[in-house]
Amino acid sequence: MTPGPGFYARRLAQAGAVLAPMAGYSDAPMRQLAAEQGALWTVSEMISSRGLVLGGESEKLTLGRPYPGEQGRVVQLFGAEPDILAQAVGRAEAWFAPAALDLNMGCPVPKVKGRGGACLLQTPEVAYDLVRAMRAATPLDVSAKIRLGWDADRSVEVAQGLAAAGVSLITVHGRTSAQRYTGEADWDAIARVAASVAVPVVGSGDVRSAPQARARRKAGVAAVMIGRGAVGNPWLFRALATGEDTRPDARERARTALRHAQLHVAFYGADRFGLLSVRPLRKVLHQYLPDHPELREALVQVNTLEDVERALAPLWQGPPHPAPRPGPPPAEHEEHVALSAP
């Protein structure tokens, strides 16, 4: 059953952290691992509203498609046209059963210029119209993820406008769009936003450990969102949900890396060549085992599940994995912009 309003308030009553939307990373397998370890909620890779409405996409779009039984997943949309976004909200709700909808106002990649993302920080009044259109299209919570500004800090002004437009939650990444991912996230600026609006504020930027996350909570945020720090480390969510910071040993981390590959194959199925490929995980798997650099060369060259097993053999020993049931092939017209966390 589709959740109703109040999702964010219910989840924020619990301890923990949030998995950030990261194109090319926060897909269904990664979301599943984070959710199992206690993430408050997860956010999909961003989806083009025009792609959903005008691009021939369907419920088979892997960017939005949930894994079996998935709950607590927020679908993030980007766009700059209120009527298109409103229609996209309806389709996302019908096809993907999200817990809430999020507006991307933070993606700094030039190829989305003029189509939403961080460009909206230059014309925030457009973003307020987008939020109102999204809210009119769904009973679910609507949130927005912003940066501090385009090239200067306007975050308090923008956050107050978003709150007035009716968002249920605001996530703030502590950099401007011009900074991209350089320098350090400004958590003092995030704290000013949190103090300026009545809606909950989630802080994002440069959180790579549980002690860091706990320290960032002192900025007055309702929760911390973790992106790159969670790649290869879903146990970070367990630590923040339970207070137990014990890091798994290399054997458990190797087993989880293998399971990530198994989930990948089961979710995506065969590629266009008919292969059960794990090539997209080349950038991920070695991050489970940063203390074993001798495995990196093999892990960044894997093609199949068997390659992953062989690469991890020095650390992981046990019975052969059960053959995964292939999922449906990817949608033919799916749009996927490869980005880092917005």
Rank of each mutant, 00 (worst) to 15 (best):
Asp307Met: 06
Trp187Arg: 13
Ala210Asn: 06
Ala185Val: 14
Ala86Gly: 14
Pro324His: 03
Ala144Val: 15
Ile226Leu: 10
Glu332Ala: 15
Arg259Lys: 04
Thr256Val: 15
Tyr8Lys: 03
Val126Ser: 10
His336Met: 12
Ile170Glu: 07
Ala261Leu: 06
His333Tyr: 03
Leu121Ile: 05
Gly24Phe: 02
Pro108Thr: 03
Ala195Val: 06
Ala254Ile: 02
Ala261Arg: 02
Ile226Pro: 06
Gly232Thr: 08
Thr242Arg: 13
Ala17Cys: 09
Val167Met: 07
Glu309Leu: 04
Arg208Asn: 07
Arg216Val: 08
Ser155Trp: 08
Leu162Glu: 09
Leu315Trp: 14
Ala254Asn: 02
Met225Gln: 15
Gln301Gly: 15
Gly24Glu: 10
Arg247Lys: 06
Gln262Trp: 14
Leu140Ala: 10
Ala92Asn: 04
Ala99Lys: 02
Ala266Lys: 00
Ala97Pro: 00
Lys145Tyr: 12
Gly274Gln: 00
Leu121Ser: 08
Pro139Glu: 14
Gly24Trp: 04
Ala298Val: 03
Ala219Trp: 10
Pro330Trp: 00
His264Thr: 04
Leu312Ile: 06
Ala194Gly: 08
Gly64Gln: 05
Arg279Cys: 00
Ala164Glu: 15
Ala210His: 06
Pro82Arg: 12
Phe273Ala: 11
Leu140Cys: 11
Pro234Ile: 04
Gly183Val: 05
Val74Pro: 09
Leu19His: 03
Ala28Asp: 01
Met134Pro: 02
Leu19Asn: 02
Phe78Met: 12
Arg259Gly: 00
Pro328Lys: 09
Val89Leu: 13
Trp316Glu: 10
Asn233Trp: 09
Pro21Glu: 11
Glu59Gly: 03
Glu334Met: 08
Ser58Ile: 00
Pro319Glu: 14
Val224Phe: 12
Ser26Phe: 09
Ala159Lys: 13
Leu275Asn: 03
Val308Thr: 05
Arg272Leu: 06
Val126Asn: 13
Arg251Phe: 01
Met46Ala: 10
